[in-house]
Design a protein around this nucleic acid. Structure first.
Lengths: 233, 233
DNA sequence: AAGTGGTCTAGACCACAGA
DNA sequence: CTGTGGTCTAGACCACTTG
């Protein structure tokens, strides 16, 4: 007897989540130590740990050394967005991709970009304005700033052929990425660039990346009217 | 001698990423087996596994049993969005939160909602239209459909006091969440509901959740003009 | 059928943050 | 200082998937 079932970390996770859902442990409550739970569930501590890591990652609990594990007071809906390289996004929709370099120059960062990076002083960066096209129709316009200190090689890349988006993604990993999404009304400039009617609603994605503490790039990408951003199941 | 350093999974991860970045392994290439890498790095296989799991989670590599580990051909920018309970979002910005139930009724799902859930036939669901306010000014308007089969208790909740958003997040976990974000031009209806000027750009979030295969809720949330969605650290 | 990643265990030590 | 989560190891077995 004493048939010892083997517990999977997902079962353990669901059990713990069950305890939270049936209000055994409410928001802000402290859960038992991993070791204690391992004893109760009859599994190894590392299995409880695996389960807890998942719960923490999904915003259900918070863990701190010495502080233990607590049920989050403020539940969140957590979603992972995959933002592909624009060329692939266009091609996957069955369109022919093209890319046009609009402008490229070294300039001092304006306040908005300084704020994105957390600079207190302007710095010289490479500014690249480019348009992505799908079947020759504007798809996304991007206004990008690239750090010359972190990415010096960028000056020797021909950005008329290889676009900055792709070059950076393929050649520069990032360890931190800030994202900001909002809607903006189309201006006269958008009308020309994106073939948007003035006053139309445009979807804007601002993205800033670092490798460790070193700034890589900050960009503002404005999509064509009707653009949608999805999560992929 | 033969001082055996102890390798952390992050070091291993960075080493493997380094191999990918310096083009030792290019897009689509197959990496050595975990066991082989463990030997090379002089660590346990589980440490390599931990590193690989991180790389896979960040979209750098893809892993398949028997198929091994390959470098992703199409790198992505992966970002995690935390969408908090609206009340907390409002309160964190220092405003007073209020909530107004606009309408509540049982209706058959329209085609758009059927598509979100993947239904082929309409079903009767609870439709709840509600407005979230910050300092008495419209913040987010939500039009929500709730499954009566998966969440029968919802009919006995007084949604004038407790809002559906919060009740569901607190009482119904979800295992799958689809998200769609886009921009929309304000209509005459929005002008009244959100105090938006007609033609202004509005940010829209559509969210559909399931617990396992069972539908929970699908909603369309339209934010007040100027709303932004961020990633957090 | 066999190869490869995924998981589980038991135990040890580490590192961070409260008291 | 001490308690708690985080990591690492070595080894075993499982489960998926491809040939």
């Amino acid at each position: 007897m004493s048939e010892r079932r083997r517990h999977s970390w997902m079962e353990i996770r669901d059990s713990i989540r069950g305890l939270i859902l049936n209000a055994t442990y409410g928001p802000g409550d402290k859960l038992p130590r991993d070791e204690e739970l391992a004893l109760r569930f009859g599994c190894a501590r590392s299995t409880v740990h695996r389960a807890m890591r998942d719960l923490a990652q999904n915003g259900i609990v918070e863990r701190r050394r010495k502080g233990g594990t607590t049920v989050r007071r403020d539940p969140v809906t957590r979603a992972t967005l995959d933002i592909p390289i624009t060329r692939l996004e266009v091609e996957q929709r069955g369109y022919r991709y093209r890319h046009r370099l609009i402008r490229q120059s070294v300039q001092d960062t304006p306040p908005a970009i300084m704020a994105n990076f957390g600079f207190s002083e302007p710095r010289a960066m490479l500014r690249v304005e480019a348009l992505h096209l799908a079947d020759n129709r504007p798809y996304i316009f991007e206004d990008r700033w690239i750090s010359l200190e972190t990415v010096p090689e960028i000056t020797s890349v021909d950005l008329t052929h290889e676009n900055a988006n792709e070059w950076l993604v393929r050649n520069r990993p990032y360890s931190k990425c800030d994202l900001r999404l909002y809607a903006r009304t189309a201006t006269a400039g958008d009308r020309d660039m994106l073939q948007a009617q003035e006053g139309e609603a445009l979807f804007v994605m601002e993205r800033t990346t670092w490798i460790d503490a070193a700034p890589i790039t900050s960009l503002c990408a404005v999509a064509h009217p009707g653009y949608q951003l999805f999560t992929q199941g």
